[in-house]
C-alpha cells in the first residue's frame, strides 16, 4: 500500500473513532437522565459531566504517556504503569500527607495538593527513571525488573506510613488518594487541562522528534537528535502525564497497554501524531463505554477498572504468547 493511501486510511479511521467517541459521550450523558424533570436532569448532568471530563483527561494522559514511554524504551509491552509510576505517585502523595498532616492548607485545597503532587512527582519520578535509563544503558529488562521492585518497595513504604497514621487522617487520605470512577477528583479538572496544554506546548519540539526516537538511540543520534537531553524532557512529560491520570481517575494499570497496542495494530504506522490521537480516542471509548455498562447494567457493583484490568490482563497475555514476532 502506498503512503498517500495509507495516510488517507488512517485519517478516515481516526475520524470514525472520533465519531464513535462522540456518540458514546452523548449516550453517556443522556441515557436515563430524565430530561422531563429539569431539576433531576441538571443534578444528573452535574454528576456525569465531571466524571466524563476526568475520563477524557486521563485517557489523553495515559495514551500519550504510554506511547512516548514505549518509544523511549523501544518496546511495545512495557508501560509506565507496569514500572510503578502509579505507586510512586501514591507513595509521594501519602508522604506529603504524612509529613504535613491533612489539616495543612496544602492539603485542604485540592488544586494546591495536586500542584505539590505534580512537583514532587515530576522531580522524583524523572530523577529515578532517568537514573535507571542511564545506569542500565536503556536495557528494558533491567528497567522492568527494577521498576517492579520499586513498585512494591514504594507500595510497602506507603502502607507502613498508613499503619502509623492517625485513623482520621488516613480516612481523609484515602478519599483523596484512591480516586476511582465513582469518586473522581473533579476539582482539579481545570488545572489538569491547563497542565496538559502547557506540557504539550513546552514539549512540542521533543514530541516532533518521537518518530526518530523510535529508531533507537544510535539512529536517533546519527540523525542529529540531542538524545540524552530530549529523553530527559520526554520522561518528565511522561511522569507528569501519569500523575495527572492517577490524580483524576486513579490507577488503571492495563489501560495504557491496551490502547497503545490497539492503536499500533489499527493504524500500522510509526507516526506518533496518529498513534497518540488514536490511543486517546480508544481509551475514551473503552472508559466511557465501560462506565455506562457499570452504571446501567451492574448498577455500580462492578467498577470499570475491573473490566479494564480483566480485559487488559488477557490482552497482555495474548501479546506475550501469540504476538512474539511483532515485538
Amino acid at each position: 500500500m502506498n503512503r498517500a493511501k495509507m495516510h488517507r486510511r488512517n485519517v478516515t479511521r481516526l475520524a470514525l473513532l472520533a465519531v464513535m467517541v462522540l456518540v458514546a459521550v452523548v449516550f453517556y450523558l443522556l441515557v436515563n437522565s430524565h430530561p422531563e424533570k429539569p431539576k433531576l436532569f441538571q443534578y444528573i448532568l452535574s454528576l456525569r459531566l465531571p466524571t466524563l471530563l476526568c475520563m477524557i483527561i486521563a485517557c489523553i494522559s495515559i495514551g500519550a504517556a504510554t506511547l512516548i514511554f514505549q518509544s523511549i524504551v523501544n518496546n511495545r509491552i512495557v508501560t509506565p504503569a507496569l514500572l510503578g509510576m502509579n505507586s510512586i505517585y501514591s507513595f509521594l502523595h501519602t508522604a506529603a500527607v504524612f509529613v504535613l498532616g491533612t489539616g495543612s492548607t496544602l492539603f485542604l485545597n485540592a488544586n494546591l495538593a495536586f500542584a505539590v503532587d505534580l512537583l514532587t512527582m515530576g522531580v522524583v519520578g524523572t530523577l529515578i527513571y532517568w537514573y535507571l535509563f542511564k545506569k542500565t544503558g536503556h536495557n528494558v529488562l533491567y528497567i522492568m525488573l527494577i521498576g517492579t521492585v520499586l513498585s512494591s518497595l514504594f507500595g510497602s513504604v506507603q502502607s507502613a506510613m498508613i499503619r502509623v497514621m492517625d485513623p482520621n487522617e488516613y480516612d481523609a487520605l484515602l478519599g483523596s488518594l484512591v480516586a476511582d470512577f465513582n469518586n473522581i477528583n473533579g476539582e482539579i479538572i481545570l488545572f489538569a487541562t491547563i497542565m496538559l496544554l502547557v506540557l504539550a506546548f513546552v514539549l512540542r519540539r521533543e514530541l516532533g522528534l518521537l518518530d526518530v526516537i523510535t529508531m533507537g538511540r544510535n539512529q536517533a543520534i546519527n540523525l542529529g537528535v540531542d538524545y540524552d537531553n530530549v529523553i530527559r524532557k520526554l520522561l518528565f512529560g511522561v511522569v507528569l502525564c501519569m500523575a495527572v491520570a492517577t490524580a483524576t481517575i486513579g490507577p488503571v494499570s492495563f489501560l495504557g497497554l491496551i490502547v497503545a497496542n490497539m492503536s499500533r495494530q489499527i493504524f500500522k504506522t510509526y507516526k506518533h501524531s496518529h498513534l497518540m490521537v488514536g490511543a486517546s480516542l480508544m481509551g475514551m471509548l473503552a472508559l466511557i463505554g465501560g462506565q455506562m455498562i457499570s452504571q446501567h447494567l451492574f448498577h455500580f457493583t462492578v467498577p470499570v477498572s475491573t473490566f479494564v484490568t480483566i480485559a487488559g490482563g488477557i490482552y497482555f497475555l495474548y501479546l506475550l504468547l501469540f504476538k512474539k514476532g511483532a515485538y
Partner: peptide, 9 residues
C-alpha cells in the same frame, strides 16, 4: 543492531 520496533516501510 537495527531492530526497529515499529511498522515502517
Amino acid at each position: 543492531h537495527n531492530n526497529v520496533q515499529m511498522k515502517l516501510t
